[in-house]
Write a protein that binds this DNA or RNA. Sequence first.
DNA 1: GAACATGCATAACGAACTTATATAGAACTG
DNA 2: CAGTTCTATATAAGTTCGTTATGCATGTTC
Lengths: 120, 120
Amino acid sequence: MSLTSAATLATLDKTGPRRITDLAVAEGVTQPAMTVLVRVMEESGLVERKGDSSDKRVTLVCLTEAGASYVRTRRQAGVNAYARLIDELTGDEVAALAAALPALLHLAELDSHAREKSDR
Amino acid sequence: MSLTSAATLATLDKTGPRRITDLAVAEGVTQPAMTVLVRVMEESGLVERKGDSSDKRVTLVCLTEAGASYVRTRRQAGVNAYARLIDELTGDEVAALAAALPALLHLAELDSHAREKSDR
DNA sequence: GAACATGCATAACGAACTTATATAGAACTG
DNA sequence: CAGTTCTATATAAGTTCGTTATGCATGTTC
């Protein structure tokens, strides 16, 4: 599974059904790339396409139950991997990390905004 | 410039001349991939090949001055980008980050070791 | 010194993108 | 309300960066 596929599934999980162009912008790839990606993920049963009734050009991409389950599994694997590493830190280090968490989240948010601007 | 190229230059800068197989392992790619990468970087004037006198099979890859300068420029750009983001944090957040720095470095080190093991 | 091991190179192929362009539906315009 | 124009997606061809398989020259071993 490509990095972009996983990120797209996570985005769908976080924000609900989206149109293809939308997803392409969100993941920073071109629309044709996202079209192909969605086809592949559909063939794997991770997403479904639903036509929009009010605009017959758009196809809404939705997570299937299998897709949602995949996202959960992957997220859990990431959490576990980090947990294993953090277990090897000293108590002081863990405390320092915990204290820095709000700052790190803020940094991540600022970074994603900066990325959006420079992408356009 | 590909991510792997930049990482390879950084490795050469950090550890000095290396043989191609070595670099491939360090960057987690195959030897043929590194062979091609080195050729491209050589054509761009960023590295030089030097034969090893004690073993005529090996080619030692060395940073040229242009390559070293490229590494410095890129590193500085990264520092600047982070500095710009950190400037937007509150004083408390910056302090928390600074306090967590040793823990973060330790985490990064643990992570790279874990990666080495799972790569093999 | 013959057989095997090692370091690098080359070839052929695949995955994940890109740009350019086609097509069908929506929206605007005189 | 027919014709242009815009928008959402699809398809095609080409690029980049990797892979596996294999060849070739040099080293190592018994």
